[in-house]
Design a protein around this nucleic acid. Sequence first.
DNA 1: CTATAGACCTGACGGC
DNA 2: TGCCGTCAGGTCTATA
Length: 271
Amino acid sequence: MPELPEVETIKNELTPHIIGRTITGIDLFWERTVRQPSASEFRERIAGKKIVGLGRRGKYLLVQLSGGDTLIIHLRMTGSLWQTPPPEGLKFVRAIINLDNKTSIYFRDPRKFGKMWLVADADCVTGELGPEPLLPAFTLEILSSRLKRHHIPIKAALLDQGIVAGVGNMYADEALFVAKIHPTRPADSLTSSEMKRLHAAISQVLLAGIGNKGASIENYYRPDGSKGTAHTEFKVAHQRDALCPRCGTPIEYIKVRGRGTYFCPKCQKLK
DNA sequence: CTATAGACCTGACGGC
DNA sequence: TGCCGTCAGGTCTATA
């Protein structure tokens, strides 16, 4: 499940392969991957454009093209991008972006949830996102004021991309464990010291995730087909039947607003 | 405002 | 072996 650290890793590792290359064309095997514009216009408009920059906003990958258009890719739950040469018999390839040096980028997505846009103004797609949690502008005050506006479980607030961009199910659980906050605590009920711990924890777990090149829990692969190792350092996320590394208490699994949630009932008390 | 359910999809897994 | 139901979770939309 690509979240901020996974998309950041893909961006970093894809950059040397595609910057400066010109897109000769795109093969679409599942047209509904394209959200905007129509599939035919998408194919037409992208051909001949040069890739001039690669960026990331939340979980969105931004491919800046000559002429001002941006190709935006969201991998949702099972998407991944593969560079040439892909493994023989790579399944579930939904699109192939062909480049002028006879290499390609393969968009693999078993569950077909991934989406692409080709737009003149990226803000049309990413404009509603909350702040980037790894930029200096993401201060404790910003996080605090945003969370205080919501009387919803803190876990749900962290997953709301309009409050903070890029945090998904795995890193939300990790951040709450590091900050010692119970996932169902109302977001507007956190004390200032809890808020401070959470603010630091978000950066900490995201940076650790990037340092480990992402977490390969399910369908996440890096562009060269290798896996990330962030999941090997997870304390609670997806640690079914495991013990808390801090106190030895069995990790609990609950549903918070329909999302699978792992936490330590002793370290993350609900007062 | 918050909450819930369904939609989008398919592989993996447990039960029989 | 094989069929079937359930689950996974990012995001959007509809409804209570």
